[in-house]
Computed example of a mutant assay.
Amino acid sequence: MQITHLGHSCLLVEVAGRRVLLDPGTFSSFEGVEGLDAVLITHQHFDHLDPDRVPVLLERNPHAVVHADPESVRLLADKDIPARPTVDGEPFSFGDLTVTPVGAQHAVITEYVPRIANVGLVLRAPGEPSLFHPGDALDAEVPAVDLLAVPVSAPWCAVKETVEFVRRIAPTAVVPIHDGLLTDPGRGVYLHHITEFGRDGGVPVRDLRGAGAVTV
């Protein structure tokens, strides 16, 4: 598996001969991405889905199919972008790559902000590491995974909740995402807490920001 962190929560994952792009939002740089089999979207917030740039992305990737939470499917339909809804517990495949949707709702931001749909995604392929991208929720239950794409900082979570999420999922290692709101020093503080307390004795952090395509 190769993973490229394209900013914030956007990951390009190359696995089992397939190329999939997750959460192409406004804080991410995905303009040059080509050869995609799929674009996967966890939810409709602008930092995970930029509906103004997705059409150009799909023009560059005419064979890519789009899978998204049901609310994002409706939003994309308004822009004449066909997308297939992801539903908790209903997997779909691209060759040997299986994607299993998990969860249904975005985490609570405040009581004044209506909750929206959020469907996390677990990627698995024989002989490859497994990866869980939760979008913006920390409540999904998933079988053991090798890599957890962990949201580092967000209006809807505190670091104590992030740490407990990592401890509960118990991945082999974590990949930091959702970091577009942080300064570099502030990001380092969050990563320190996740590394030191995400598991007794510490959890390995694969920090892919700015590293290009990394084999994991």
Rank of each mutant, 00 (worst) to 15 (best):
Y190W: 14
P82N: 11
V20T: 10
D200R: 15
T98Y: 02
I3M: 14
S153F: 15
E90I: 05
A16Q: 12
I3W: 05
E141C: 11
G35P: 07
V73K: 12
S29W: 13
G35C: 09
G135L: 06
S29C: 09
G188I: 07
D136L: 14
C10G: 06
V189C: 07
S29N: 13
H43A: 06
P91N: 10
Q2L: 12
I81V: 15
V214F: 12
A38N: 07
M1H: 00
L138P: 01
Q105S: 15
V66K: 00
V166I: 13
G7D: 05
S28W: 08
P185W: 04
S130V: 11
L57E: 05
H63V: 00
R206H: 14
S72T: 13
E59M: 07
N61H: 02
T4H: 07
V113E: 14
E128N: 06
V166N: 03
E14W: 03
A170Q: 13
D200S: 15
L36N: 07
M1S: 03
R168D: 10
T110M: 09
G7Q: 06
I116M: 15
P51F: 01
S28C: 12
I116D: 13
E111A: 15
A144R: 15
V73E: 11
G95H: 07
A83H: 08
L75Q: 12
I81F: 02
T42N: 11
V163G: 11
P151E: 04
V119F: 07
V20S: 08
P155L: 08
V20L: 14
H48M: 04
G120Y: 09
E196T: 14
V15G: 02
D47K: 01
A77Q: 13
P55W: 00
R18M: 00
I169Y: 03
T172V: 13
P126V: 11
P114Y: 07
L131D: 12
V203A: 04
V122H: 05
C157Q: 14
A68K: 02
I3L: 15
L208R: 11
L21Y: 10
A38R: 08
G188T: 09
E59Y: 00
E31K: 13
I3Q: 08
V20P: 08
L181D: 08
G212V: 10
V87N: 04
G188C: 12
R18I: 01
H63W: 00
F92C: 11
G103Q: 06
G89E: 06
V56M: 06
E161D: 14
D200W: 11
S93N: 09
V174W: 10
E71R: 14
H5C: 02
Y112Q: 12
V56R: 14
R167H: 04
G7C: 05
V152D: 03
A158K: 11
L76Q: 11
E128Y: 05
P55M: 00
R19K: 15
T183Y: 02
